[in-house]
Amino acid sequence: MSAVPAVQVHNLRKEFIRRDGGSRKRGRRRRVAALQGLSFTMQRGECLAILGQNGSGKSTLVRLLSTLLINDGGSAHVFGIDVFDKPRSVQRLVNRVSVEASFFKRMSPMENLSYSARFYGMGPRETRARIPEILALVGFPPERGHEPMEDLSRGMQQKIALARALLTAPVLLLLDEPTTGLDPRSKLEVQDFIRQMREHHDSTILLCTHDMAEAEALADRIGILHQGELLCLESADEIRQRYHADTLEQAFLNATGRSFEDEDEESRRGVPA
């Protein structure tokens, strides 16, 4: 299995139909390319970061690999399994953490985690033993395990999101802006946890982020995604060299002609976030 790439994406395309302004009857429909012929390979155990503005296609890539979208062309394989032909087999290998923690807010962390675990074939006996272990691993106080999710801070909720992903022992972990909106301390805790997952759980990690320092600190290689196209995919040093920049921010600006502070691509192109 080690000879098979963890992720192999070839010429992957995804388009969305958007309606221009005006009434439903008069509004013109147009196809907007979210991903335009994306190709890359990830080896097992690798951490790859994708940098891009909102609407650059990062979330579309994560959702395609999560089997939540169907492609319009090209292919994607996870450990040699076709994502679009055999989605169920891929679903057993993949889990994700996104920018929003996304839980049943009235239910407790224990209830939410049990619910998620059932979908991956874990019965009550197994989860009773495993959930406290995982919560300890992510540094979640056990005495708060029965409080409603809505009473927990955003940082705490994101820890539960990480626990949910880890509970199913994914060999491919998709992280879609996992630290966006977190306070500095929570952000560092989440980043430490991502490192632990790589070191101790043999996970391959695809990290989509806005945060250049985070990308550089965690990833082996960094890709810049701009208007659905992958402009480069190499180490941070190689990117700086390629774009004649001292910092990754400057390299990003030189590569795309835009900074993160500029208007979101999303609003210009009509690609969903």
């Binding site: 996104s98 998620s116 979908f119 074939g121």
Partner: peptide, 8 residues
């Protein structure tokens, strides 16, 4: 999204 990407 979590429910519909689960292997069930």
């Amino acid at each position: 999204e979590y429910t519909f990407m689960a292997p069930i």
